[in-house]
Design a protein around this nucleic acid. Structure first.
Length: 284
DNA sequence: GCGTATGCTAGACGCATCGA
DNA sequence: TCGATGCGTCTAGCATACGC
């Protein structure tokens, strides 16, 4: 059986990650400003150790940032966490839990296995360590332990005496937050409004980077409706709308090379989106 | 002008060290 | 002993130098 690949999340303290994400919000596309801001959070430490060795890889593995070097910036999920965290600590955690649960569900499945299997948590951890690809058992254990620590700090797992179990109340809240059915009817309206606002901001250039519209739509859903739309959900919802209708045509632009977080549609990967309105009055 | 070599920078990751 | 921290090293990608 092919072993799972679980990356090592070196900076897994959620409160620290919140602070680091604020630096990314303050200094998008500004590596120097970003580096200085982050190093202030880690007194007297080296750029290589903290910035390049811990923060960047961890945030990238969690899908919270995009780009390299001067292009480093928040992803839509990262931006959503920052917006929610500004509202309150609990709201920040609420969004973080949704993002973590989505990753766990896709790659690791600790939460599902903990619910499903009526076995001791340590046994579950041991069986996971055997199933993941890592240079050594020590490394595999470290990867699982860091992931478990994040789930504990997020409150999705709870420690009772020496046992770990699922925080059922919180998890049902996360499941509610990740329920896409409540978002379908609002999606089209929000999507076209955000497209229009980015279009105007770009001085009427119709071709928009998909990461930008993801960020705009996910933020709008949260601020207007208090709904969490993750990047994965955005992509699913976008795939669900008509690309050609009586009043508009949506075109997608291919990526020039290997890039991050491309939009997958009908087995192809796209980086940009543009909309031609046939009867502008109708839609906007 | 073109192709190759070399050096530098940034990102990623393994593992050593330290303290509880 | 184990978890937390961060240093050392490797690799990829890019820019520049150099030779033909």
């Amino acid at each position: 059986m092919k072993k799972k690949i679980i990356p090592l999340i070196k900076e897994y303290r959620i409160q620290k990650l919140f602070k680091v994400l604020v630096c990314f919000e303050k200094y998008p596309f500004n590596r120097d400003g970003l580096r200085e801001c982050i190093l202030q959070l880690y007194k007297s430490k080296e750029e290589k150790s903290i910035f390049r060795g811990m923060v960047i890889p961890s945030l990238r593995h969690l899908g919270l940032i995009l780009g390299y070097d001067e292009d480093l910036r928040l992803s839509a999920n990262g931006n959503l966490i920052v917006i929610a965290r500004k509202k309150s600590e609990e709201e920040g955690l609420r969004v973080f839990r949704a993002v973590l649960t989505e990753i766990d569900d896709l790659d690791i499945k600790i939460l599902k296995m903990t619910i499903k299997r009526n076995i001791d948590f340590d046994n579950l951890k041991y069986s996971l360590i055997k199933k993941i690809e890592a240079p050594s058992e020590k490394q595999a254990r470290e990867r699982i332990n860091h992931w478990v620590s994040m789930l504990l700090e997020a409150g999705l797992l709870v420690k009772e005496n020496e046992k770990r179990s699922i925080a059922k109340g919180l998890l049902s809240q996360v499941e509610k937050d990740l329920d896409v059915s409540t978002k379908k009817e609002k999606f089209e309206k929000v999507f076209f409004e955000v497209y229009e606002s980015i279009f105007k901001k770009q001085e009427n250039i119709p071709i928009i980077d998909i990461p930008d519209i993801r960020t705009g739509v996910t933020a709008a859903f949260y601020t207007r409706h208090n709904l969490i739309v993750t990047e994965k959900q955005f992509d699913g919802l976008l795939r669900g709308i008509k690309f050609a209708a009586d009043d508009y045509i949506i075109s997608l632009g291919r990526a020039m090379g290997a890039e991050e977080k491309l939009f997958k549609h009908e087995n192809n990967y796209y980086r940009t989106i543009s909309i031609r309105f046939l009867n502008k009055e109708v839609k906007i």
